[in-house]
Every structure is written in C-alpha cells, then in structure tokens.
Write a protein that binds this DNA or RNA. Structure first.
Lengths: 264, 264
DNA sequence: ACCTGAACACCGTTCAAGT
DNA sequence: ACCTGAACACCGTTCAAGT
C-alpha cells in the first residue's frame, strides 16, 4: 500500500523520534552519541531515573550540559536511544536470535521472550518507566517485534490476532513489571531482603500489607481482613508465570489451525 | 496474627503515605486539604501531568507555594490524595457499589469493574502515570479491593488464587491503559480523530505505524512488512475486551468449585 | 564541525518570620 | 493554627560566541 524498501536497505529513521542527523564520526571519542548513551545507562543503573539530569550526565563526561545537546538533541531523544539500546541487550537473551520460530513449541518460545523481557526490566528498574509513551520502533525494537510476530504466526494465529496478541503481550509484561519495579529507583542493596525491617525488601512489603490489612475494621472490610495473610505469601515469580501462562494459553485458543495438543 | 480493629472503627492511616495529621477543620475554605486536591484534579484534567507544579497550583488557589505544604506535606503526598480521590470516582461507576457479589455472574461483574477502571483512566489520562509506585491503600482503594476480592471469592477461587488474580487484574488493566494513554497529557481536543493529519488521533497513530512498517526493508523484516496493514486496523476497545476475556476466563479455569458452564 | 559559559524560565522544598 | 517571602539547590534548553 505504501513505500517498499529495496532489499538490504538500511532501516529508515522512524517518524516519532527524530535525532539531529549527524554524520557518524568516530575519533578518540571523548564524546559521541554512543558514549553519551553508555554513560547515561551507567548513571541510570547506578543511581536510578531521578538521578539522570543533563547536567549530571555532562559532568560525568567531563563537559557542560550544553555540549550534549549537539549530539542527542534533547533529553527525551537521549532516552529514546537508551530505550532501544536496552531492548537490544534483551534481544540477546533468548537463544541467539537465529533460532527459528518452531510451530511445535511456539508457546514456550513466547514465554521465554516474556521472561527475558521481565528479567531485563528487573535488571534496569527504570526501563519500564522510560518506556511509557515511547513507541518501540528503534532498530532493536523492530528486530524484537519481527521475532515475536514470526513466532505468533508460526503458532497458527491469524494475522489480526497475532498483531493484537503481540501488542497485548507487551502491555501485559510491562504492566506486571511496572507494578513490580514501582518507583524503586536504585537497584536493591546487595543484602536486600536479608536485612529484616528493610521496607524495600520483597518480603517486608508483603508483611507490611498483611499487617495493615489485618488491622482494618472487620465489619467494613471482612474480605480484606480475612485474606490479609495471603498478601504476605504472594510470590512474584509464580504470579508472573500464572499471568503469561493464562494469557498465552488464551491466545492459543484463538489459533485457527488447531494443533494436536490443543482444542477449541 | 496482628491487630484487629473494633467494629465501626475508622480506617487507620496506611504506613506508606503519611500526611501531616491535622484536625479536619472547615471554614470559608479559601484553602483546605480538600480544596487543594480538587484544584489539583481540575488542573490535571485541564492541562495534564506536566502542568501540575506546586507553584502553579498555589497560584490557582491565590496563595504561595509554601502555603500548600502545611496542608499536604509534599507534592507526592498530594498525589496520593489525588490518586485515591479518583479511585473513589471510579468506584461509583459499576452499579451503586451495594450490588452483592453474584456467584452466577462473577465474571461479568469483574469485567464491568475492569471496564470502569479503564474508562476512569481514559477520563483522567494522567491517572495511570501517577499510580506508578503508589500502593493503592487509601480508603477508596480499600473499598475497591474489598469489592473485587469478594467477587473473586464468590466465583469460587481459592483465597490464594483470588489475591494473585486481583493483583494481576490491576497490573493488566494498568498495563493496557498505560500503553493506551502513553504520555498524552491533555485530554484530546474535542475534534480529535476527526481532524485528518492530527498525530494524536487514534486512527492516525495506526496509520503512521503502518506506513513506517511497510517502508522497512522486506528482507530484514518480512513479517513486520507483511503485517503492516494490521497495525492500522487495531481496535483498542476490541483489544481490551480480548484481554480481560482471556484473563478472566483463565482465572475461572483455576476455580476449584467447577460451575455448570465451565470445565477444567 | 564541535564545544562553551551564561542566561532564561522554570522546579520542590525549607525556614524564619509574621499574624 | 495558619500563612508568607525569600532563599536554596536544583532542572531542561537556548544561544551567542568561541575554536
């Protein structure tokens, strides 16, 4: 319907996030687009999203904030680059990326990708937050989309359902990890969860919820009070597994090609 | 296991977000906690999340920014109040809130709540963004949780699954609406979607995605290129319906009490 | 082509001082 | 008990000027 590109053509720039169109030059790189992105990720990993400012980042690189603007245009554009860079890190997770979509185990392949995506978001706890409002159309995001959709098609989903299912899978995984990472900025301390009383440790959060819910007036909140204990036992790995199992099985039920191991 | 409250007791303050503990006084209210929250919501609805600053809000109320701090403690605490206030608006959506959980139509009741929650998030497009990292334990959030969990129990889910299912439902709905509202701050213009070329209108976004995907080199992205058209046809209402149908049906399959209309 | 310092127009929050 | 002005320590971004 629209323009087709010639084989082997470079990926065109997406219309959403435009960077200053600079010749890709490379020197002793005291400063370069790549170096800025790398430094930003370093800073984000170390100190969290709130710590990333153009001034602080420039300082890290031994320049003034104004210098960064020539390379990346704006902070938002820089976050676009960071976003796609991290997606690229995630794509290397499941197999080597060349493993072909296998119709007989497409659900497992999809689950692996979902797990890898969650792991990525847990490694970089600001990732889901910077992804908000960012359409994933960078080169690495495209490679990921290509792969996921290929798997869904191999699974026998009609094209329409495959696209809807892909968009939903992304939303579902992001919704879960957003809930999970919250605003927790810096990576958890090495001993998180072992130190009792640490409010950031997973077990403590559940215990706090339990205690608070149990303390509610039982005549107004009979169910919450009775279920309070369950909130302490909540296992995020199990919950994530339940989620994607449920979701992908539901998707499978929408495949037109009925495979031996499933029925309508 | 922990403290139980006497019947009819007031809801204790949750340990997560503490407000300055002020006597609830009421006067000609040139300024009060309620007035500040109401003004904040007005400002947010009109101009979006980025427009809310303590200075601007104070100006709206005819004071200086410093005055607000005595009433709400901090901007973050103010957003806690805004959050729970909006949840309260949403709770009034499905029935009158007194309609009892009905075991024979628990799935429908759950779907109504999910729909109401999405509608709320679309009415206040910043809501999902301010909910990030905010544990929903305000009075209105508690009432909502109580109701949803009662429905899940009425549906025959074991307590453990009910709690997990509830937490997942919230994450799933938020993930979807987060994707949907993105960073789109102000409410769409009254004629959004009718004005061709408006990049914020729903149809246009799909068309942009289609055109861009179709323009990719087909040898590197055969699947994306072939599915490009589907991205333009994507219907968010349909997609949301697919999502919660899939999810709730999956939940139902985990109920131990097998009801007549379902099987393991 | 690349970098800089200085400025502009903002932030959230604190605090001594007022009434 | 409530409000205030002024200050502190920040932001993202622009822009004329340098090399």
């Amino acid at each position: 319907m629209t323009d087709r590109a010639a084989p082997g053509a470079p990926i065109p720039p997406s219309p959403w996030h435009r960077l200053p169109d600079r010749p890709v030059k490379r020197r002793g790189e005291p400063i370069s687009r790549e170096a800025i992105v790398a430094a930003a990720i370093r800073l984000l990993d170390a100190d969290g999203l709130a710590a990333l400012s153009m001034r602080r980042l420039a300082e890290e690189l031994g320049t003034g904030a104004a210098s960064l603007y020539w390379h990346v245009g704006s902070k938002d554009a820089l976050l676009d680059l960071v976003f796609d860079e991290l997606i690229g890190e995630g794509v290397g997770e499941f197999g080597d990326g060349t493993e072909a979509p296998d119709p007989s185990r497409w659900r497992e392949q999809l689950k692996e990708i979902a797990q890898a995506q969650r792991a990525l978001s847990l490694r970089h706890r600001y990732l889901v937050r910077i992804s908000v409002g960012r359409i994933p159309m960078g080169p690495n995001a495209l490679r990921l989309s290509e792969r996921v959709l290929a798997i869904l098609l191999a699974g026998g989903l009609p094209p329409r359902v495959a696209v809807q299912g892909y968009l939903l899978l992304v939303a579902v995984v992001n919704g879960f990890t957003m809930d999970e990472t919250g605003m927790g900025d810096a990576p958890p301390a090495p001993d998180a969860g072992t130190r009792p009383g640490d409010p950031a440790s997973p077990g403590e959060t559940g215990a706090m919820a339990r205690d608070y819910l149990a303390s509610l007036p039982a005549d107004q909140f009979p169910v919450l009070v009775s279920l309070a204990d369950e909130f302490a036992l909540t296992d995020r790995n199990e919950r994530f597994a339940i989620l994607i199992d449920t979701f992908i099985d539901g998707l499978a039920r929408r495949a037109t090609k009925v495979r031996p191991d499933e029925s309508a």
